[in-house]
């Protein structure tokens, strides 16, 4: 028997006669929030990320202010590309030719998101926000979240996502509590997370 067959046989022997289990799903799969945008902003803020809530029309302007003079990277197809391009010192677009070394030289990255979770202050990135390295290597991540992308709870977020796309769930800047459980923001991932909520 090869390892696969043997492990499967061991499992079948071990569980023979074990009872079937019903799964009670009494937990909340849908949560109604009075102010999802406000809750999301508050919870992202709790992670010591910088949060801006601005009307949709003012998003390009705010992005321009934030990236002014910085060397930025962005995924192709970002709706606010023109505003960023106009203000940034330099703009590099994600693509197969973009090396990690080049990414390491930019100041920051600007992306949108796939979905955001109000209760946990989480942003989820999928392949439309570029390859995973894009939002990882630069030290500054500027993320635009549109109000319609904000859901209240984790179950609602999962329902909106496509599992086969690589996903990164981001809740605040990178952090560690490995030293005396004292939380320190900024380790290997972007040390600064700035979120612009388009309300």
């Amino acid at each position: 028997m090869n390892a696969r067959q043997e492990i499967l046989a061991r499992i079948r022997r071990a569980v023979a006669g074990a009872p079937e289990v019903e799964i009670p799903r009494g937990y909340r799969t849908h949560v109604t929030l009075e102010d999802p945008v406000g809750r999301f902003a508050e919870r992202v803020g709790d992670y010591r990320a910088v949060v801006h809530v601005v009307p949709a029309a003012e998003v390009p302007g705010r992005l321009a202010e934030l990236v002014a003079g910085r060397r930025m990277a962005a995924p192709e197809g970002l709706p606010w590309l023109e505003a960023v391009r106009g203000a940034a010192a330099e703009l590099i677009l994600d693509g197969p030719g973009l090396s990690v070394a080049e990414l390491d030289r930019v100041d920051g990255v600007v992306t949108g998101c796939a979905v955001a979770v109000a209760e946990t202050g989480t942003i989820v990135l999928d392949e439309r926000q570029g390859r995973r390295a894009l939002t990882l290597v630069p030290d500054y991540h500027l993320c635009v979240v549109q109000a319609a992308q904000i859901v209240a709870s984790v179950p609602e977020a999962l329902a909106r996502l496509t599992p086969t796309s690589p996903l990164t769930w981001v809740s605040g800047p990178s952090a560690t509590s490995d030293i005396e459980l004292d939380r320190v923001e900024g380790v290997h991932g972007p040390r600064t997370l700035e979120v612009v909520i388009s309300a």
Partner: peptide, 23 residues
């Protein structure tokens, strides 16, 4: 949807851990 709520809160005592990767 169950475990992404149970684990971070039980583990680091956060609403959500900073990064979760899925591939």
């Amino acid at each position: 949807e169950v475990f992404l709520q149970l684990l971070p809160r039980s583990s680091t005592g956060e609403r959500m851990n900073p990064y979760t990767s899925m591939w």
